[in-house]
Nucleic acid binder design. Sequence first.
DNA 1: CATGAATGAGCATTCATTCAT
DNA 2: GATGAATGAATGCTCATTCAT
Lengths: 220, 220, 220, 220
Amino acid sequence: MQPCVVSNVDDPALVEMRRSQFVKAASELFARKGYHRTTIRDITQSAGLSTGLIYSYVRAKEDVLFLVLENVLKSYLAEIPRALEAGGGPVERFCATVRAYCEVIGDKPDATQLAYRETKSLGADYQTVIKNMELETNQLIIDRIEECIDAGYFRPVNVELLTYRIVLLAHGWALKAWRLQQFTTLDEYIDEGLDLFLNALLTPEGWAHYREVREGRGVQ
Amino acid sequence: MQPCVVSNVDDPALVEMRRSQFVKAASELFARKGYHRTTIRDITQSAGLSTGLIYSYVRAKEDVLFLVLENVLKSYLAEIPRALEAGGGPVERFCATVRAYCEVIGDKPDATQLAYRETKSLGADYQTVIKNMELETNQLIIDRIEECIDAGYFRPVNVELLTYRIVLLAHGWALKAWRLQQFTTLDEYIDEGLDLFLNALLTPEGWAHYREVREGRGVQ
Amino acid sequence: MQPCVVSNVDDPALVEMRRSQFVKAASELFARKGYHRTTIRDITQSAGLSTGLIYSYVRAKEDVLFLVLENVLKSYLAEIPRALEAGGGPVERFCATVRAYCEVIGDKPDATQLAYRETKSLGADYQTVIKNMELETNQLIIDRIEECIDAGYFRPVNVELLTYRIVLLAHGWALKAWRLQQFTTLDEYIDEGLDLFLNALLTPEGWAHYREVREGRGVQ
Amino acid sequence: MQPCVVSNVDDPALVEMRRSQFVKAASELFARKGYHRTTIRDITQSAGLSTGLIYSYVRAKEDVLFLVLENVLKSYLAEIPRALEAGGGPVERFCATVRAYCEVIGDKPDATQLAYRETKSLGADYQTVIKNMELETNQLIIDRIEECIDAGYFRPVNVELLTYRIVLLAHGWALKAWRLQQFTTLDEYIDEGLDLFLNALLTPEGWAHYREVREGRGVQ
DNA sequence: CATGAATGAGCATTCATTCAT
DNA sequence: GATGAATGAATGCTCATTCAT
């Protein structure tokens, strides 16, 4: 379905293992030196493997960049939905998802910065795949917003636009981490950010529900 | 004060002219192909000048990137303050500044994207200069926020943090323009964005003032 | 006597079999893509065997080329003498040998072309072996010519030189097959070629004999 | 008209000069080591120029091979017609042309060998150009043959086929020079070769004409 | 000042060969 | 004996930079 990176090696477990070695090394290097300043030798040496080997697992340097970025977006898609395991009402689920998105990015801001910097270094096909994964991630937020609207807790809004504001809230931490960390924490950043949105979105009914939950939490 | 790009050529007017030729050509090329994929020959040819000439106005390719990015930030610093010419109260001035910031970015989103993608391609010193220019731009917003707070129209908030939320509002348009344009306009994006912030920031006194102004505008 | 290609494997039958598998695959690939553009993987894959295995039957890639070329020349040495089985007089035997040489080449012109293209890709020792095999092949013609001269059917000539003219007659078909096939057939090419030589070589006595034979054939 | 090798450099005289330097160096190296075993570094070093420079005059290594082969065939096309300057009758002109062809090849047999070995290393387009130049060369012979036939000096024959026999006479010297030189000279090779053909081709009228000419020459 | 030919270090990629399993 | 993953030297080509004119 997606333009999969091809490998000479058959054993899928080995492919998985080697690629993750190369991706790990490349992620660090790309983040530090950028894609173009990082050589294949840098990557293979850093992975403790020989220069030529990488070409048994990848067709070209570009494939490595794709695998790195794919890996980042995959981790979003894997981590964010776990915020819903705790259950709760629509608003809680919305907040948990936003928080999860911010936290997964806060966990490795370099990865998100890398995505912003180097996605355009990919060929058109790979860019499409990456963008589709981003849209898939956005859907996790869209679903929460619509849940809140359907429940009557959020005012009806332009869902797509709101989603992007939240995406920018999350990505913003990564993009400006160097400075934001000087005068705030990720927690405060998220809390205040959520306040901003809830303030503008909650209906009276939503407020009632939200207060209930917060007080319940506060008692704990 | 700032690590100025050195030139072999004496005549300042000529330096200015040639550099702007190179910067113009390079801006387009960097935005389209990225810094590393653009060659010096690409730039000089596109500028209609000879390959070697650029080295009379710049010491290295990196200098060109710096000049391009500096040019972007300079335009922000030049354009945004013009929003204050219309006068008005603190909240109006705040709104006008935010709007101006968004609009100057909406005008050439490629330039802002470029800054996000390629600032790290600069050496540490140049990065510092660029970051300082960004801080200088931020100050334009900080001043407006503090004006509003001092006037009692905004609740006291973490000014720096709020500033970055606004910066992200403005930059967000450039970063996500490819998708946002599909379901909103820059105007709607700004209006709704401002609403979000004002909603959370205005004191009762601020609201009174704000309503007055909006109605005054609405009458027109 | 000849620098034989060494093998790790003991069983001669197995060596024979594997080598013929590799030679078969390599012949086709070398003819199509050339020796240097053909990789060891191409050969082993095409032979349906694993990459490393070939190095149990051959010391280096060059050995494969040698085996391929040796195989070609061996087939000449095996096929051409069969032309003498039909018996006949000296001139008939000469003609039959020339014809056989042309036909064995006409049968697989790619092999001969390959020999012309890639013999120099071999090391000096291997080249010597191949050249000696060519000389051995030439001897088949030399013997026929001398037979005819001794019988008084051919004028005395520079035998070696004549031999090479005939070798070029035969090889010429392979070297220029791409074009010759457009306006003649191998049979016509041979017949007319033989005519040319007989015309110049036959003594009156030889002519008498030759006519007799041709008419004998014509009657059939 | 022919897929011309492109150059970055404008000055035609310089292009001409540099290319001939590279071609000269490459001709020797290709002949000695073969195209694939010769590196770009070999060529540029041998030409006394820097590695990168060659790419201002040629797009790829393949272009160098083309230029080398083109150069060989161009020299044929330039040299052979000069044989006609001496004038003479059709048969003389035929003989002079054949002799000239053999001699131009005898002058640099390596070049012709190279053409046989490496033409297939070229891409399809370049191969076509080279083949067309060969056909153009053949035409020089075709014209002589037809002249002789039209004059009634040669029996009517398959002109194309005869042409290829002569081409093989000429090329044969290069292909087998290593051995032919051991028992004959180029002159003898040509003289006897011409005899062979004339013997088979001349009409009684042609013979008369031919004897006259030879005796005329003999007297000198 | 301007030109553009020349330089050569740097890099992605290939592929013959090895060797642990 | 057979496999195929691993090695790393080799090489075509690019491009920032220099400098003679």
